[in-house]
Design a binder for these strands. Sequence first.
DNA 1: CTAGATTTGTTCGTATGTATC
DNA 2: TGATACATACGAACAAATCTA
Lengths: 259, 259
Amino acid sequence: MRSDGGGVLAPGRGRMQRTKLSDQIAEDLRRWIAREGLKPGDRLPNEKTLMQHYGCAKGTLREALKALEVQGLVKMQTGPNGGAEIQPVSIDAAMQQLRSYLHFQVLDFEQIYVLRRGLEVSLAESVVGRLTEDQLKRLEANIEQCIEARDSGDRVTGRRLEIEFHDILCESCDNPLLGFICRFLNGLLRDLVEFRSDRYDEHEAFGQHNVASHRELVAAFRVRDRRSVSRIMREHMCCAESFMQRLDASFRSDLLSSG
Amino acid sequence: MRSDGGGVLAPGRGRMQRTKLSDQIAEDLRRWIAREGLKPGDRLPNEKTLMQHYGCAKGTLREALKALEVQGLVKMQTGPNGGAEIQPVSIDAAMQQLRSYLHFQVLDFEQIYVLRRGLEVSLAESVVGRLTEDQLKRLEANIEQCIEARDSGDRVTGRRLEIEFHDILCESCDNPLLGFICRFLNGLLRDLVEFRSDRYDEHEAFGQHNVASHRELVAAFRVRDRRSVSRIMREHMCCAESFMQRLDASFRSDLLSSG
DNA sequence: CTAGATTTGTTCGTATGTATC
DNA sequence: TGATACATACGAACAAATCTA
């Protein structure tokens, strides 16, 4: 029993193109998954059944399933009881897509900090009283690792670890939107920091500030002092931005002198 | 042109390819597009050529192209000079992916405004002096439309138009990250506002506030008064949040009394 | 406006690798 | 050790869209 397939037109310019059958099937499957309320671990019917249901060929159905797979909705598996298995909605697929969108745009650290200096404060406020003992311990362990990295002179690792501190905070955020964006900004910073100048003094000062701020933050989190958390994070963001600015400046002068 | 394709096929004995052939081809095409620096409008080789290059069957290649199409990198076209055409990196694909990620999360207007009240102010500040005469005119026209919608009692259209005001501001933002997120938040609000209560008095007051604030904003934009813009938008967001809160409250009481 | 050429879209048949029992 | 179920992949052919002469 083939679904219509005749009159479905795609809005466009002069060329009105009949929507591809594989796209119709993909869209139908998406709706079916939502309507049926399928959860991660559930499986779609196998290819043969779906082929009979939609009255289409293997290639067509496989293109439809491929679309769902790329979007991270399902994962294909071979063997008995194989087929398309519903996947937990992945934050990674959304991040990668947003990243590839921004890949061709100009982006510097200042544009990131326009968002970050406000959002990280909101994030910190929102997780006060929600951090588990395990997470607090991991925050403290992270600070120790930062100190080790600094002592061993491994600057890039140090910067990366300091960003991980903020990733841990994202875990407890009950606002999925805020959590996503903060995590995403952290990822962008991780990429940027790889290419910054290796000015020893700047990195040293930056690292010392970060360790101090992170220690104050953990202390305030432990006593659930929301106002202190807010203030410390605001100052921390402000300082971090100016440190990044100086790193960026010396990085650019390095480029000039070497080019 | 070598018809070899051996570097991609990986003729390993024992276990065949761990990753699906179509995925390998898709990844190779992505890298090829980036390395070659292909721009929107450029075309990939046609299916036959690609089949020969990768030494694969039609179905396999089509799955690979489908993956690129879903990610918004290319668009397929039939006919002579058809094939896979490179697309401008679309903001829509990134938004849709992020939306589907958040679809299964709990999200209310308060969580949106935690971000919006800060980001819209930054956005407004960043577009001061960058708005064209055309955009200023469209902002003013938008305000007139809002008044018309209010007079004709069309509340939902009014709310939608007021959000479009903020979409226009996003156009001039030179920070792609900030622009993306503000646009995305506007989209979320558009969805939420559809289901809000129809309390006439609340909507009326909300509409009047919006028109007044938007008028003040346009005036400040015209004279490029950055500090006024910042202040007005901050107050506007604060008021809008409390209005939404009241709409939400009466909406929930409606639900209770009807359920 | 029609006819042909080009290229994607779809179908069917078949074979093979792989995981489960 | 097979036997079975399933996705993966190949190849040939036809259908539909679209450009050009």
